[in-house]
Design a binder for these strands. Structure first.
Lengths: 242, 242
DNA sequence: GCCGATTTGTCCGTATGTATC
DNA sequence: CGATACATACGGACAAATCGG
């Protein structure tokens, strides 16, 4: 549900672009027109447009207008982009997602863990290992570290479903920001075992490590996700700072 | 050079954060205070802050303030994030970057090329293959497609230095937007030859394909970059849309 | 090349809502 | 409850770029 006025405009324009109301390279209605259609101020229209720009949907050109540069991408394999739980991604891709928990423990961050994850020394953490399956195939092996004090009620059952759903719907926590680093690493024995890999094929994995912050500005999660390379695809949209 | 008022504020706050003027998790001065220090309107301060937010440097918390969540990252290997040329990245990492052109041709986009790159059929394109070396080591093999009509003066010599530098400084073109997709692919014979890889080690590469737009909103570049996995590192900052 | 209309970019001021303490 | 802080929204002014006449 859109909560604000600019969010309403943003979503409306976004679906219009996605459904092809504007052709590729065509100009959207001018800000002045949009102000009248949505009965709002110019600032509000501009906020909506600036979100579309950072989505890579449109491009503003001074003196001309706002150009549609949206091109639908073939959504094969497992595409990730924004902050999304595995369950949401599976749903979006209309596929059957399942999760298996292979380890569920609580530990305290020592020097080594603290250095790797960014949590302060002595922080109590859930350490969870999970395998994500899509249409019966093991795609991802996840190493999650969650702050214990923020979600003491976390259980193995929740981890088998969706931690994010629990955080948002039960704890009413909002996830805001996620810093991610992507690398390529050699397959380990654990990867090989749980992802059922054949080393003659790919001997590497796509590895995404992420630090995630909630709306209070505290980091509550550190995760390393190890992806089967043949089903991995990461999207991004960058803008050049002048 | 900062061109606008909010850019000045943005850069000033950014360097202050990077040099440790604010501690991790500490609050920045309130918007009201920043308005007075920079002698500007609140909107202008907010614009600067919102850029810091999308950089993953700070996090705004309603009713409390703006929290510093910047943590310096170990800048080993070849880190990429924003839109940056190889030459710029090499400079930023204080390393010696060199580029070798192994193919420099002009071709016309047929159906196959058009489908892969997103250029319209019949577009005249430069097709360039280049190897990027860092400190003498071959790290990246690039397949570049540039629109011929936008840069008819492009030469092999320019391609050996920096195409972006040429575009920006000589043609005064501004690069604005880049859509990128990252995947992991098997090493090909060409990769093996030019990147001097040993297949017993890694048999995969990190592959980044990008479509880049200029300030006019026209796509002028399609590039596939194939990176040695042991020197590849991609940074990203995502925000959750509620 | 100039001029004027259109369109986006920057900046300001203000009012009101909402969350935190 | 009040003070403080960020979030949303409105309106207006001027600059800069584009385009057609």
């Amino acid at each position: 549900m859109p909560k604000t006025k600019y969010d309403t405009i943003y979503r409306d324009l976004k679906t219009k672009i996605e459904t092809g109301d504007y052709e590729y390279q065509a100009l959207l209605p001018s800000e002045h027109v949009l102000v009248q259609t949505y009965d709002c101020s110019r600032n509000t229209v501009r906020r909506a447009i600036s979100r579309l720009v950072s989505d890579g949907y449109v491009q503003s050109v001074q003196g001309k207008g706002v150009r549609n540069i949206f091109q639908p991408v073939p959504q094969s394999s497992f595409t990730m982009g924004g902050i999304e739980s595995f369950k949401e991604s599976a749903l979006r891709n209309h596929q059957d997602g399942r999760t298996r928990v292979i380890l569920f423990t609580v530990l305290t961050a020592d020097k080594k863990i603290s250095a790797r994850t960014g949590f302060p020394m002595g922080t109590q953490l859930f350490y969870i290992q999970r395998i994500h399956y899509l249409d019966g195939k093991a795609l991802i092996i996840n190493h999650n570290y969650f702050r214990y004090d923020i979600m003491p009620g976390l259980t193995r059952e929740i981890a088998e479903d969706s931690v994010y759903e629990y955080l948002e719907q039960t704890l009413h926590m909002t996830i805001v920001n996620s810093k991610r680093i992507m690398t390529v690493e050699k397959v380990t024995e654990i990867d090989e075992k749980y992802l059922e890999l054949n080393l003659d094929d790919y001997n590497c994995l796509a590895v995404v490590t992420s630090q995630t912050y909630n709306s209070g500005g505290v980091m509550f999660e550190y995760t390393q996700s190890r992806h089967r390379p043949d089903y991995f695809r990461f999207q991004d949209n960058a803008t050049r700072k002048i």
